[in-house]
Design a protein around this nucleic acid. Sequence first.
DNA 1: CTGTTAGCGCTTTCAC
DNA 2: GTGAAAGCGCTAACAG
Lengths: 342, 342
Amino acid sequence: MVSVATRVTIREIADLAGVSIATVSRVVNGRDDVSEETRELVQRIVREHGYTANRSARGLSAGRTGLIGVLVPLVHPAYFSGILSGAAEALYEHDMRLVLSPTRHEHDREVGMVDRLMHGVTDGALLVLPEESSDELERLLEQGNRFVVVDPRSPLTGSIPSVSAAHASGAGQAVEHLLGLGHRRIAAITGPHDWVATEDRLRGYHAALGSAGIMAAPELVVDAGQWEIAAGVEAAERLLSLPEPPTAIFAFNDNLAVGAIRAARSRGLSVPEDLSVVGFDDVEQATVITPELTTVRQPLEEMGRMAVTLLIRLLDRQRFETLHVELATRLVVRDSTAPPAS
Amino acid sequence: MVSVATRVTIREIADLAGVSIATVSRVVNGRDDVSEETRELVQRIVREHGYTANRSARGLSAGRTGLIGVLVPLVHPAYFSGILSGAAEALYEHDMRLVLSPTRHEHDREVGMVDRLMHGVTDGALLVLPEESSDELERLLEQGNRFVVVDPRSPLTGSIPSVSAAHASGAGQAVEHLLGLGHRRIAAITGPHDWVATEDRLRGYHAALGSAGIMAAPELVVDAGQWEIAAGVEAAERLLSLPEPPTAIFAFNDNLAVGAIRAARSRGLSVPEDLSVVGFDDVEQATVITPELTTVRQPLEEMGRMAVTLLIRLLDRQRFETLHVELATRLVVRDSTAPPAS
DNA sequence: CTGTTAGCGCTTTCAC
DNA sequence: GTGAAAGCGCTAACAG
């Protein structure tokens, strides 16, 4: 005969303490217009009975649910789960919770989810690598939705808050590392060409080469078109069959780098002796592959945390100057890079 | 002067349609006591205005929020994100959402989160690899909480619904594969000894050997004590320095298997020529490592989906016979296993 | 079949 | 400093 336990409500706490529910509400929400005496009394009762406000009721009456939607294309890839992890932790510290909403990269599903989430379930959202165009996002904002974009796919207009990694300078770090080792023919395997991540990293690549007085040979930049291992294999094969192949490859993410290593190996080339490879992201597989990958670490957890920070400020209607935050990357040198053969 | 858009409410839809809010509510909730005519009218208006019920209000009034809490130790490891992914997808199909709640393996945090979640934010929960003892879980259940345990760490009493992989038969598949290749000295690197996963896999290991008329040598079973790569390296080193080392190692998860491969390699042994290695889980790194890992695949997404199915039945107060569901595993043969040297 | 009404538990004016 | 009371938007009896 177990029935769903009926939780203690604000009414009961009020009765127990001999005060009104308004007073209990004040204490629980940390208002300061309560006498010290009353506050302590109420707090004691609250503690003794393990009372916590019913979130639905609070959401309905105060318009704040303490829930944040996080839209990610997929939850599985390490890239997204890193961001998720950081966001969940930051929200937990604010006593808020994360509503996980995978969009499967489907534009319509994403739009629908934002809409539903924003209507009574969630106070705001994080849009990770959203499918929507800048215009669509702008419109969402105008409709009164509160959100922060994490790692925008395409360039955003000024008023949409966002958090991303410093792609260009990260790429610069990678290339400078290779230059420092003595490489001069440094190839790039890029991601899809219309992504901010790709374009910015490409910019960083060219800038770093340029500063060293090197003009990147056009044939050394190949577009993998995707971010998957297979595309990396293919792109690397094209590079390695060049009349004058590169001595180092900067792959625009770790998957592509893994592909490059495989391609090299299957040609009998050894990494890093015959070919240096640098990746980007620093996800787990970077340390599983042999040789362990030298790569540019994106601060994924930190990106999630930072996005939460911005969003909470937004919800509190605080203004802030910098709507676009770029988080620094860090080069992690492991075993896949070395000076060129001779 | 953008103000937070005030969403269309049931009241407005009712007015627009010239019916009462009760009727709108009936239509929206798919009740069948509405005339076809009225239903269509209301549905049209609802569609035109993109109305969806405010979840907080519904939660408060109906006691159902459409939200499910999922407690996981961490979100990042592929193991958990696989389960999360399956659960999120299944919930989405039921128009429900997932509240992500990482516990960091902290018992108190987990208990606190269950408690808070269950109070007005969530209808029920999935507890993945929970820290609580069977007794504590039992008590939670008695207090009226609705939840399903995914991959219990310790054995559960009968009344607590759970979903897990078929550990014993999975281990059997691994060992039989090795036996089939001709191995006779088959070692096991186990996880922590008080885990259901460890004990069941160990049982499967012994059973399979036993059926082949082989008595497992005690020194061939080593307890890694953890699930991490480093522990796998260490355990494998112990095995490989035995006077009569094994020709094959069955590691109780992929991390440990990766460790075993590293240990073999650093001794100049090549896998699979000199040593076969089988893992358990089939997470991404199994295909990144060289050689690609032969491993027992756990149906992680499916476990998440199944848990959601059970939970929803539980919420609907449906009875079911099988409270404990075991999902079959599948052996994935790749390149880390081969017949013994000679 | 449809409308009226009474809450769900909480926050928030507005008085005192 | 504290309480009374009016909702927040919705669901679920209960009438008719």
